[in-house]
Structure formats: structure tokens, C-alpha cells
Design a protein around this nucleic acid. Structure first.
Lengths: 210, 210
DNA sequence: CAATCAAACTTGACACTGTCAAGATAAGTC
DNA sequence: GACTTATCTTGACAGTGTCAAGTTTGATTG
């Protein structure tokens, strides 16, 4: 290739696009690392290597490992939202159908991205002041809040229903993911989500009637 | 100090008791580290330093960092059991009173040892073949199973009730701990556990009646 | 068009980590 | 009292996060 003097980009690596390309590439690498190497496999240097940049490049965009972790968690919440809205789109228009739909979406996300689900709720220090994270996580809660609204009795706090619903579906999803690799005897009798939702729906109905 | 030749113990540190002293001291140090420095503050070398031994001493007793983590998790499950049985001892003898008691015990443990609670359920790789861990964790589940037994309908799988109850209380406890440091506006309207238990008890009652 | 400037990295260093191999030392046993 | 073995220590190595300083490069400006 004799005319490499003409093309300035291939000679020196064309990294410097002044958009967020590297940012998203690093988050992609982080998600992949979590999936392939487990919760402890995430590392700034390995993300940098997978993205083809030097070991200190991630620190420029994310400051800390906590910063990268927060960006990964924000990505997770974004996928969370799409999973729930996807189920909502196919649901009937009744309040209980919509409530059950977002619960199934919650579990869909956990099943499709167990490493991200556990990562988000691992209790590690995330930068909750971060705009991206705050927006996506509050979006997710907003979807839950909307689906719960029809079951809030007049004069009652909406959180009473929201935290009840959230507790049931989150507890079920979390325990399911935590015990995913456990002995099959335990997993064989593991009840389906719909079985819990029957109880939940009944509890919310009776609560309205009384 | 001229007569240091007489006292052999102070010259060379008297470490070698051939019982599990160092083991428990290292687990103590690990629990303390988790509390003071957060989920990422656990380290074999720091545990060794706090216990006053060399940096490689923990590897002899626990093989891996995963081994130490498993021992810490086993300690957590043990405290889990004592928290639930303590509430059971003070509970009335009705099935619902006993069920609510273990749920409160579950939350007691999470509130008293948030770092251990989150550590146990952080989804990291623990050695579930380990005898100590297996025994204590199955003990904890046994307590739950016993309290749920009166609500299992004849012919039904006990897991249906157990996972329902476990999901509700675990989801509530986990979400509470995860959002402990969040904005106070959220925490102000956070419902009490008893409010969820009312719904749970009612759901189990109606399930029996139908 | 050339000089400048700041954004987007790279390079190098440091302290810290887990893990392994090899050695030391004391406890218990015969 | 010699031997064996459990319990550590010492030393080394690769890998990690983080910081400081330099370097390249796209854009801006005179």
C-alpha cells in the first residue's frame, strides 16, 4: 500500500472521534467481562485491553472503577426498562394484566442478564449522583409506579403498594438468580412466578374491597 | 530486659494453639473489614494484619479468598439463625404469629448486619460444598420451612409457600438495605414490614380457605 | 494558513492485592 | 530425644487501581 500518505486515518490509529465511542465500548467490555468472568472479573485494565486502548484510558472517562461500575449499572437499568415496556406493549389493558406484565418483564431482564441484575443489586458503592444512572434508575421505578397506581387506595401512600409489589418480584427474581447453580432437587420444585402473582393479585384485590 | 532468655513465649510470639483460634480471628477481622471499609474492603492481607499474622497465613486455613468469603458467609447464616430463633422464642404459638416472627427475625439480622446480609446475597462465588456453609445455610432454610408448614395445603408442594414467603421478606429486606443511604424523601414513606405481612397473612389465609 | 489550545489519550510509576513455592518452627507422638 | 506434621513465615510474581506527567490530535482563532 504505497499511498498511505493520502489516507491519514489508517496510518495513525483513528481513535479520537470526540464522541462517546470509547465510553460505550468500555461499558460493553465491562458487561462482557461480568458475564464471562463473574462478578470479580471486572477490571479497568482488562476493559481497556478489550477496547484496544491503554490501561489508564478508562480513568479519563469514568474517573474511578466506581465510575465505570456506575455506567455499567446505568446500562443495566436501561435494559431493565426495555424489558418491562416490552411486556407492557403485549399486555391487555386491565390493571392486573399490566401489573403482571411488568413483573414478568422484571424477571425477563434478570433471566436474560443475570450478571447485570446481580451487579446492580450487589450493594457495592455506586455514584448515585451520576446523571445517567439517576435517570435510568428513576425511569425504571416510574414504570413500576405507573403500573401500581390503580391499586393505591385513595388517601393511602403509593409506596405501600409499590414496595409490596417490588418486594415480591424482586425477592423472587433475586433468590432465583442467587440459587441458579444450586442443587437440582431444589430447582425442580421451584415455583413459577405466576404462582406468586396469583397471591399478589388477590392480596391487592382484597385490599381494595375492604 | 536482661532475662529474656527465661521467657520463651514473649521472644517468639506464642502462636500455635492448634485449635481454631486463628480461623475465627480471621473471620472476625473479615466481618469488621466489611463493616468499616465496605464490600470491596475485604482482603486476605488486611485480615492477616488485623489478626497479627503474616500475609500468607489465611491461605493456609481458607485456601482462597473464596474460602475466607465462604467462612464469612457461614458466620452470617449462623447469625441469621439466631436472629430468627430469638424472635420465635418471644412469639405466640399461632401459625401466623410464628410466621411473622421469623420474618421480623430476617429483617432484624439484615438491619443489625447490613454488610453481612448484602455480602451473603451479593452473588459472588462461594464454595457451597463447604460443610460449615452448607450446614448453617440449610439450618436457616429449615427454620423458614418449619414456620411455613402450617400453611401448606395437603397435596401441594411446600416450596410454593416457602418461596412466596421468602420472596416477600427477602425482597423487602434487600431493597431496604440497598436503598439505605438514598434520599430521605424516599425513605420517609418507606412502609413498615408489618404492612407487607398483613397482605402476606391474608393471602395465605385465603389460599387455605379456597 | 499557521499558531494555539484543550480534549483525549499514553507512559510510567507506586502501593496494594491474591497466590504459589519454599523454608522455618513448634506440638504432639513414639 | 528423634521424628513427623500442623501451622505458620518469607519471598517472589503477576495483576490491579490510581495518580502525575507527557504526548498526540482535532478544533479554533488570529
Amino acid at each position: 500500500m504505497p499511498d498511505e500518505v493520502f489516507m491519514k486515518t489508517p496510518a495513525t490509529p483513528p481513535r479520537r472521534p470526540r464522541d462517546g465511542t470509547l465510553r460505550t465500548a468500555l461499558v460493553d467490555a465491562g458487561v462482557a467481562l461480568l458475564r464471562t468472568r463473574g462478578p470479580d472479573g471486572l477490571s479497568l485494565r482488562e476493559c481497556a485491553a478489550q477496547a484496544g486502548v491503554s490501561h489508564a484510558a478508562p480513568a479519563y472517562h469514568f474517573k474511578n472503577l466506581a465510575g465505570l461500575s456506575t455506567a455499567i449499572a446505568a446500562r443495566g437499568y436501561s435494559l431493565f426498562c426495555t424489558a418491562m415496556t416490552a411486556r407492557l406493549a403485549r399486555a391487555a389493558n386491565s390493571p392486573t394484566a399490566r401489573l403482571n406484565a411488568i413483573c414478568h418483564g422484571y424477571l425477563d431482564f434478570a433471566s436474560a442478564h443475570p450478571e447485570l441484575f446481580l451487579f446492580i443489586f450487589s450493594g457495592q458503592q455506586l455514584d448515585k449522583e451520576n446523571d445517567d444512572f439517576a435517570q435510568h434508575s428513576s425511569n425504571a421505578y416510574g414504570i413500576l409506579r405507573e403500573a401500581c397506581a390503580p391499586f393505591v387506595q385513595p388517601g393511602a401512600e403509593p409506596e405501600e403498594v409499590e414496595i409490596l409489589v417490588w418486594s415480591v418480584v424482586h425477592g423472587y427474581a433475586h433468590l432465583t438468580m442467587i440459587h441458579k447453580a444450586d442443587n437440582p432437587k431444589f430447582r425442580e420444585n421451584w415455583p413459577k412466578l405466576d404462582l406468586l402473582l396469583e397471591h399478589l393479585d388477590r392480596a391487592l384485590e382484597t385490599a381494595v374491597k375492604t
